[in-house]
Amino acid sequence: MQETMPPVVLTDSKSPMDLGDRHVEPGSAPAHTTPQEVLEDLIDEITIDGMCGVY
């Protein structure tokens, strides 16, 4: 039996969180966002040299 995925709801969120192209306001459930996608978005690693404004 296929498990029904609950909609994603942000808790204690103070600002829109970057979910790629999807912007989520606190307390709302975005369409087409699976928990797996949310989990993958919870950590974003930036190449430490990957920010402009330093030489």
């Binding site: 990957g50 920010m51 402009c52 330093v54």
Partner: peptide, 22 residues
């Protein structure tokens, strides 16, 4: 690259980095 060529990311797959002005 220190993300200094982010203007070139418009050519296709973005280069590594934030691709924005910091």
């Amino acid at each position: 690259t220190g993300d200094s060529f982010f203007h070139l990311s418009a050519l296709g797959q973005p280069l590594d980095g934030m691709n924005m002005c910091g």
